[in-house]
Each structure stands twice: as C-alpha cells, then as structure tokens.
Amino acid sequence: MNQYFSDLLNGARSLIEGFGVTLKALLSPPVTVQYPRETIPVSAGYRGHIELIIDEESGSHRCISCGTCARTCPSRCIEVKGEKPEGGKRKELARFQLDFTRCSLCGTCVEVCPVTALRFSRVYGQAGYTREEFMIDVLKRAGVQK
C-alpha cells in the first residue's frame, strides 16, 4: 500500500518535471529553419555531383579521356569518350556523361584520376520531374563555367 502511494507521488513529480522541460523548450527560440524560404549555408565538404576542374593556367579542363574513372566506378555511371581532332596529336574529350541516378558519391573517380581533373561540386537540393534531368552532361557544364 505504501508502495502504491510512493509510486503515485514520485510519478506525479516526474511528470511535472517533464512538463517543466517542455515548457522551457516552448519558451525558447525555435530551432526549425523554414526551408525553402530560409536556407542554411552548405558546409564546405559537402559532396554534390562531380564536375571538371577548370585549370586556371590553361583556362580549360584537364581531362585526357583515359577512361580510368569510368572503369573503376563501382556503379558504372560515367561515360567518357575522347576523339582525335583532325590534325591534332592527342585525344580530346568529346563526351563526359554522368548518370546521377546511379551515383553513390563514393569518390573513387575523383581519387583515381591521374591528372586530378575531377572534384565534387556543391550543387545542393537538386530536384527534377524526369529522370533525364539527372543525366548530367559534365563537359557541357564545364564549358558553361568557362
């Protein structure tokens, strides 16, 4: 019988203490950010889809279209094609397509590139209506960035 009453009292006290916690939280400033009307700055290390680095000296990308990134990608989502232009000596990059629906953002392509041509972009909050919007033409994007 004593146990019953002590349970009752201790229980009531614990519930009131709990209410005190939530009341304090009610009167504190809210932590919710009303996204998308307000945004938080994206952190520096965030991994968006890959992009070609524009070299400052040459003014263009460094890719030599060796295809190592395409071969080592675990999800096989990169397509690289190089073509030799007429009268030119070396292959130039003609097509660099990324299938972002399969990419797992592992970073293998960025690491194995022999000339460090790739890096992660900071594109955040991509949304689209069709699957085709996520087939990213990385070469075209590099051309636009120039």
Binding site: S43, A44, G45, L105, G107, E111, F120
Partner: peptide
C-alpha cells in the same frame, strides 16, 4: 560529419591505408 566525410548518413570516408582526406 558532413564537413569531414561529405555525406550525412552514408559516409564513404575510410580507405585501406587511412582515410580519404584530412580535416580542416
């Protein structure tokens, strides 16, 4: 964790021989 590893949940940060990149 996002700043260090690049992702919030499915981190791909360790490699055989160390980690991908240093912290800032």
């Amino acid at each position: 964790l996002e700043n260090v590893t690049g992702s919030r949940l499915t981190h791909c940060y360790f490699r055989a021989g160390g980690v991908v990149q240093d912290v800032d």
